[in-house]
Amino acid sequence: MSAERGNVKILVFTCRWCGLIGADGAGRKRIELPASYRVIQVDCAGYVEPDAVIRALASGATGVAVLGCHVGGCRFNDANHPALKRLELLKTLLDTTGIGGRRLLLGFGTAHESHQYAEMIVDFHRELEGMPSMASWLPQGE
């Protein structure tokens, strides 16, 4: 079984109030980041339904990250609690099937934590590189 090395694609769903500003900050500080990730801005991490994460994995993403505000510090009060609870449950399911809950990263930070953002993405990238390939789960080429 081949590893995902060199084939890593990360899709990042990030809340625009905290995570996205953190990502911006990481860019402004010229922190070197892997080129393997793309960011989708959402209004709140609570918007990210687990189905969207599943769909991303099905469409060829190696890993998905969902970033929100600190738990309890969410702009919409409790909105990131359901995000956390649902996605933790999804991790259980991914672990069961062997796809691996580690393909889903949950991160909670604030707008000025750009260094943490960078660290999270770099670590996640490195972790995904070592994961087994998902080829057997994806539709075989065109």
């Binding site: 687990p50 189905d51 599943i54 769909r55 994995l57 099905a58 449950l89 999804l90 399911l93 991914l94 099937t97 796809i99 789960w137 994806l138 539709p139």
Partner: peptide
């Protein structure tokens, strides 16, 4: 969410979405 008319069903989309909808 799930491409129609494809057999076998897209495994991750169809199966995992179905399973997760019933999680709780």
């Amino acid at each position: 969410w799930v491409e129609r008319g494809v057999i076998p069903a897209e495994m991750i989309s169809f199966q995992i979405i179905r399973a997760f909808h019933l999680s709780d």
